[in-house]
Design a protein around this nucleic acid. Structure first.
Lengths: 181, 181
DNA sequence: GTCTATAACGAGATAGAC
DNA sequence: GTCTATCTCGTTATAGAC
């Protein structure tokens, strides 16, 4: 799978540049230069710049949905563990997409391409908080969720042991069995 | 201080919109509309769009530098606590600026307006990790640092008890006296 | 499927009247 | 200090040749 189709190559380069410079910060010119083709070729394979974005997000969004669905039948504690493991795994496999999605400004996530994502994030957040409604737990969940994404985005970090490290950090911060009860 | 100068109003609106839509996602047109003036008026008060950005970041960057300077003479444990308290306080007072700075893509931080910030972030990260060089600790520090910023950005969260909550989350995740030693 | 050329538009910035 | 009008450039997207 060394030489792929132009279409796939466009997606690869676009993911790279969107993650690095942001969606608005990347022009079709930039992508075309990276691919080694013209802007017109880009727009032959994709209807618009938005369409490229949508296709990039699609796979990641689908997998996120699957993860959330897997959590639903579990009890709070099991869902919390599964959410941490699953989410760390997911963002490690979709680093650039995560950078693109999470690095964007609040308003960016309102775009139609991300419509499915927001409820999934909420569900994941609830799972991270072990389905507690305590504001402290919810905030902690948000901190870890977004912190994990941001760290994974940093390209100078090796993914080797990152997985275990991130899971460890999240567990330490979120799971505290010796609670006031 | 109800009615302020046009200049201050421009800064206020720009901070709001940059935080919401991103720097690239906000046009001078947008800011002018928010202020209720023309683009030309914006550029009478500021030399360029970049200049508006630089002035917005300046105060936050200076205070961050002061915080980092305060940490330096402290020992690792004291610096860690002071860093957590100080940083949470700082981002709560500079919510929009934090959103702007931290929400941007990696490449965005390379802009001259942010040149001073990067070493400060590194110092803060080291303090969060209690000056440990253990990769686990460093990653945990990064997760908390960026997680805190991202949560504060979320405008639907009340700042009332956010301070104590965030400090609590960070302490729980970063300070672990019962360490392997 | 890929290209060059160009259209149509919005951006940042400037000129000059008031 | 603020405005309208304009300039210049870069952007997305289209047209049509090869």
């Amino acid at each position: 799978m060394v030489r792929v189709s132009t279409r796939d190559e466009i997606l690869r380069v676009a993911a790279e540049q969107f993650a690095h410079f942001g969606y608005k910060g990347t022009s079709l010119q930039d992508i075309a230069a990276g691919v080694g083709c013209s802007k017109a070729t880009l727009l032959y394979h994709f209807a618009s710049k938005d369409t490229i974005l949508a296709e990039l997000v699609e796979a990641a969004a689908r997998e996120l949905g699957e993860l959330v669905a897997r959590l639903e039948p579990l009890d709070a504690a099991a869902a919390q563990e599964a959410a941490i493991d699953g989410f760390v795994d997911l963002v490690l496999r979709y680093r650039q997409e995560a950078a693109l999605i999470y690095g964007g400004m609040p308003q960016f996530l309102q775009e139609p391409a991300f419509a499915d994502l927001l409820p999934h994030f909420d569900a994941l957040c609830a799972a991270f908080a072990a389905r507690s409604t305590d504001p402290d737990e919810c905030v902690a969940a948000k901190v870890l969720l977004s912190g994990i994404v941001t760290v994974v985005i940093d390209e100078d970090l090796e993914p080797t042991d990152l997985r275990a490290t991130l899971v460890g950090v999240a567990r330490r911060a979120l799971i505290h069995p010796h609670d006031k009860d």
